[in-house]
Amino acid sequence: MHGFEGFTLEYYGEVFRDGRLLIIVLNTVVIALLSSTISTILGVVGALAIMRTRTRRSRNALLSMNNVLIVSPDVIIGASLLVMFTMAGIRLGFTSVLLSHIAFSVPIVVLMVLPKLQEMSPTLIDAARDLGASGWQVLSRVVVPFIKPGIFAGFFMALTYSLDDFAVTFFVTGNGFSTLSVEIYSRARQGVSLSINALSALIFLFTLLIVLGYYVLNRRSAKRLGTGVPR
């Protein structure tokens, strides 16, 4: 075991002294939180839209459209969004990365919320209506509480996909804006540097924390609903 000189926190200090790195960490977290929040809202709207279609055919059409982004390789999503942003004159950077992350997260949220909506009995809504609830009240007091586990699952999936994404971000990031995955990639390509190891460890711990939080939250909401289905 030669060369092992004991534990050191030196390189973690380096990570925090590296101002550029701190900004990148901040970028990554802000993008992840914003994109997963927005895509959760959009995804719930999408799932409700799919539920309310009248014919089986239009429902299947919507579902397969939804699946296009799920099966598409990241390279295609990245390249096509790059083309669109350039044509629309959106400067590559924060906005383009945020929009792309929302784009690939929405279908995931839809898929997580949809089964919960299908589980919900329509008589529940009829009952609320008979009791005089308005459309908004039905949504906020009956539907949303019922599909809450699905919404949480969707939000966390979106969060981890956003934190994890490399390929799509790499295409639409431009100069000057970077997220952790892109930064690790470019540093790893230049040869392995010291700070990556410390950085990797930090992300690893961060991911573990999120996973833990997800399971705790999931457990709690599952318990409250009396359905012990751990997902």
Binding site: F4, F7, F204
Partner: peptide, 23 residues
């Protein structure tokens, strides 16, 4: 690889020397 990451966590210095050799 995950075990390796944890291994790196505790052996920063040694890894540093080895990777310098790699490159």
């Amino acid at each position: 690889p995950i075990a390796y990451m944890i291994f790196l966590l505790v052996q920063q210095r040694r890894h540093d020397a080895r990777l310098r050799g790699l490159h």
